[in-house]
Design a protein around this nucleic acid. Sequence first.
DNA 1: CATCGATTGGGTACACCGTACGCATCCAGT
DNA 2: ACTGGATGCGTACGGTGTACCCAATCGATG
Lengths: 237, 237
Amino acid sequence: MVDDPGRIWRRAAERRRAGLDGDRIAAAALRLADAEGLAAVSMRRLAAELGAGTMSLYRHVSGRDDVVELIVDAAWGSEPPPAPTGDWRADLRALAGRTRRILLAHPWLAFEAPTRPRFGPNALRQTEASLAIARQADQDIDRAAALLDAVMSFTFGAVQRELAERRAERNSGLTEDEWRRTIGPYLREALAGGDYPHLRARVVDGADPDHAERFAFGLDRVLDGIGAWLAAVRGER
Amino acid sequence: MVDDPGRIWRRAAERRRAGLDGDRIAAAALRLADAEGLAAVSMRRLAAELGAGTMSLYRHVSGRDDVVELIVDAAWGSEPPPAPTGDWRADLRALAGRTRRILLAHPWLAFEAPTRPRFGPNALRQTEASLAIARQADQDIDRAAALLDAVMSFTFGAVQRELAERRAERNSGLTEDEWRRTIGPYLREALAGGDYPHLRARVVDGADPDHAERFAFGLDRVLDGIGAWLAAVRGER
DNA sequence: CATCGATTGGGTACACCGTACGCATCCAGT
DNA sequence: ACTGGATGCGTACGGTGTACCCAATCGATG
């Protein structure tokens, strides 16, 4: 067998039949990741959290990667995907909003989820629901997939940026202003040279953007672009 | 001192004055990361690559995080940012294209770069150039930053998806088709149930999308949306 | 009820990781 | 020539994932 991405999920189904604790592992790991970050989810730590021996975990999970795969899917399952209502624009917006909410609720997820395609039950349900929504805009599966991809690409990218900024704020002092004074010595020196007029304008004159507002702005641009394109495609027919 | 993100870059400047080998470390680390992935860049391995003792690295770099920060900036410096030409749409497209090229050339970068804001010399130059381009579309710094953010959010998200798919293809067998047969046992079972009609349509009837084409499609939608918005804003004035 | 097979729990050990600390060496400026 | 600071680096500690193997337990069967 070359590589079997379906392994864990088949196994999970079997376990459920046998009634064992693959779920407990996932639940404990998710709790740990949310509380102390994904790095804190080590096999030893996780086992300790469950009051079990480290190697016992390997009976239910084939390694740490499996644990991560499990909690990624569990996180996606924390809020059901929205159902199509007939208004593709509103539905796509709701879908993006749900995605952002979930990513913000599990800050490790945004950096782990996009590393490879996932096939957990919740991921499957979610993809299905997303395609159902996208096909309201265009029944053609390839065009629907393409426009969904554009929306989701933006969503992930935007939330990652948001999380990175949030983390930077958390890390150094407290406020965005405080942070500026921390990086100050270096950045001020760089800006003082006059080599970066636009950067300087952004830092000095620019307003601190509201994250939610930023997200909504970008999303609206994407949806506008998709709307215009749909109109053009329909016009051609 | 709470936390000093400018530290390494100040230090780099001093080193250059003193003429030491902070650069050699960065160059070797970048080579290693590109050849064997970021995970292969360990302090021991890196030192061995340089024919030096492990702890010698700590004279020039305050830890592994510094090494990563150095190679991230070095990677951004591998292609100069485009200069404004007067056509904001073409320039933003060129900027996104350059970003995609760099991210694809250093596959580890797409997953490392967005974790926090960077302030290396190349990152600074790049931000400056990007803002210069964005301000061609709208002189207002906040609006320019907002539209640039939308473009870059999409770009990062899209390339991450692309890399994830590429990796999945690499990992299991060879072709996309081969991959489908690998995941087959599990996915086929899931699709056979009839619970996922849209997903099934995508897998069975859908075409394998060309990555570059997908990227161009999404980017065009974003740029269209921005164009329409700019026209509306200008109309209001 | 006794017995046997399979399934599960877990301890030990190995090879890696980042890095704190302190000692040896070398080179520059006086 | 001497001396002080910069530099190289060996050792050691606490962490990581997990391969391997033995003990215990549980279920079904005779």
